[in-house]
């Protein structure tokens, strides 16, 4: 990523942002590069619409439409707290299975993290790279199960393993988590200081969660 104005971004954070952007163009476990690129375009449009006071499907009672992909992107982008198990059943009926669900959720969540970061520091939203040809990898964990969440996970559903159904999405989430906030190992350091002290970071985290109506 590049910034022409505003605060200077460290190399490791800029590299992490670039990896997220690249991942919008490369084949994933179930989606082609072109399909992932489309997901990213939908997500940016949904956020822009929501920021302008209009949204496609953000009504809490809105039911899944079409093949569910665009609906899911819009919902995760603008109103993730309104997702319920009934929606996942409707998506499954529409042909959107758990691996594709996890792939879309992971991709949208990381893109919104990057876009929020860029918006907040005053940088232009980076352009999305052109999609890369190639088939989906098909890499899905074969030892995942419904262990407390709505979607299969490897081990009990919890923040660190939310995306473990797809190993590549799981690793990408931790890569960005470590660059922007703290690594899983680094979270043990309650006196950490990365420009903000840990207490200040946790305040930002808590306030963000409140605004998103998330209880994490």
């Amino acid at each position: 990523m590049t910034t022409d104005s505003g605060p200077a971004v460290a190399a490791d954070e800029a590299a992490a942002v670039d990896r997220v952007l690249s991942s919008t163009a490369t084949p994933g476990a179930t989606l082609t590069g072109a399909e992932r690129h489309q997901v990213a375009l939908w997500s940016r449009r949904a956020m822009a619409d929501a920021s302008n006071g209009c949204s496609i499907t953000a009504s809490p009672d809105g039911e899944v439409t079409g093949d569910g992909r665009e609906w899911l992107v819009d919902r995760v982008t603008t109103a993730a707290a309104t997702i319920r198990p009934t929606h996942i059943d409707q998506l499954d009926d529409a042909g959107l299975d758990a691996p594709t669900y996890v792939e879309i959720v992971g991709l949208v969540a990381r893109l919104q993290a990057v876009d929020t970061f860029c918006f907040a520091i005053g940088a232009e939203l980076p352009e999305l790279p052109a999609p890369i040809d190639g088939p989906p990898t098909g890499i899905v964990a074969d030892n995942a199960g419904l262990l407390g969440g709505w979607i299969p996970t490897v081990g009990p559903a919890s923040p660190p393993n939310a995306l473990t159904l797809l190993p590549d999405e799981h690793e990408a989430m931790h890569d960005l988590h470590g660059a922007l906030y703290l690594s899983v190992e680094g979270m043990a350091d309650l006196d950490a200081d990365r420009g903000l002290h840990r207490t200040q970071m946790e305040f930002v985290a808590a306030r963000t969660s409140l605004l998103n109506e998330c209880f994490f």
């Binding site: 969540a109 990381r110 907040a120 922007l180 963000t208 994490f216």
Partner: peptide, 10 residues
């Protein structure tokens, strides 16, 4: 950090 929790919340 705000960006990270935009991801984690979702």
């Amino acid at each position: 950090v705000a960006g990270n929790f935009q991801m984690m919340n979702r």
